[in-house]
Design a protein around this nucleic acid. Structure first.
Lengths: 197, 197
DNA sequence: ACACTTATGTACCGATCGGTACGATATTGA
DNA sequence: TCAATATCGTACCGATCGGTACATAAGTGT
């Protein structure tokens, strides 16, 4: 056991709470008071545990990807379904998260991506956002590449175009959820968009 | 001519400049200094001409709709094209605006919609955002209703579902543009999504 | 010329911003 | 028991936030 007074809060739980605050309000819209209130800690504790506001934001983004992002990919690899069904399950899984009443609504990464453009997001955090989106696109491109190799789809549209299409859909569903769309509506959109895969 | 000293700036131009600042940085990410710097006026002039930050934001949103929103609808009514072609032209027209290097990138309304959720957007401005999205959805629904009546599409998917689908596409394209996607990529997405209308 | 009206620039307001210094409080190993 | 270490709460820092008071400048109609 290390010497010194022990932390009286759970760092993981505090990070989850910070994530939800950033998710709700965005980066410039979130103040340190918002964060410390939600996390139930004081500012010095926040700074000693997470660095500063920007680093906490980056940590929150990474945590979001791990907790709410990567879990949907498994639907793309269900052995008993055809490609079209698997993609639909993938998107529906995302749509359920986007409209989960226990969560802030929409996709944290999508919201952060929309905040890119001005000078309000620090450069390092900006890189994190771009990196996450690039990873998603690369993952989807490789997925469709494999499906093409396996003979599960035609060579046109190309895997990279398919990846862009799915990414656009995810973003679109996210903003729709932020606008108050119900899960049933999102599923209709998914069903309608599924004619080509 | 009305009495008193005359305004030394053009109110419409100033509003355009304010619109682009909000469009770039979002509402909480935009400070009064950002606004007055971009508009080339002092704070008292801003307040006497536009009320306050929130009212200026609402005015900027309304102006955006008039200047960059409604102009795309004409493509839906081109007499010499089939429904599928018209919708594609409509979306391509939007995509060109979303990626216009002279503009902040993406859709201002989409970005504002993403900022809904926390307590950072004042209630009245929130209502403006929802109203704009509702108008877009209603417009698209009525459009597809008319196309259905004219025998240009099947009764399934229903006009309201088609409207939701197009709105999702618009939002998705906007975030893609904000993420740095090129016009050619957006057009590929549009082409791919066009198989059903 | 003059009273009246409106816009402008400066200088300021209280509140909040992100961030920190510092003493008090726990917990460790010796 | 006691130094060493690490976290805690409080109280504060300069800077910036949205918003305004006020004196000056520039127009109007009579």
């Amino acid at each position: 056991m290390k010497a010194g007074r022990h932390r009286t809060f759970d760092k993981d739980i505090a990070l989850d709470q910070a994530m939800e605050v950033f998710w709700s309000n965005g980066y410039p819209g979130t103040s340190l008071s918002d964060l410390t209130n939600a996390m139930g800690i004081n500012k010095p504790s926040l700074y000693s545990a997470f660095g500063n506001k920007e680093k906490l934001y980056q940590s929150a983004l990474e945590r979001y990807v791990q907790k709410h992002g990567v879990i949907h990919a498994k639907h793309l690899f269900a052995a008993d379904k055809c490609l079209s069904e698997r993609v639909q399950c993938y998107l529906t899984s995302i749509a359920e998260m986007l409209t989960d009443p226990k969560l802030p609504g929409g996709c944290f990464v999508c919201i952060s991506t929309c905040e890119v453009g001005g000078t309000r997001i620090p450069t390092d955090a900006l890189q994190v956002i771009f990196k996450i989106n690039q990873q998603t696109k690369s993952f989807l491109t490789e997925f469709f590449n494999n499906e093409l190799s396996a003979g599960n789809m035609a060579s046109e549209p190309s895997p990279v175009i398919m990846a862009n299409y799915i990414l656009s859909l995810q973003f679109g569903l996210s903003v729709m959820a932020r606008n108050g769309a119900k899960l049933a509506e999102l599923n209709e959109v998914i069903k309608l968009s599924a004619v080509k895969f």
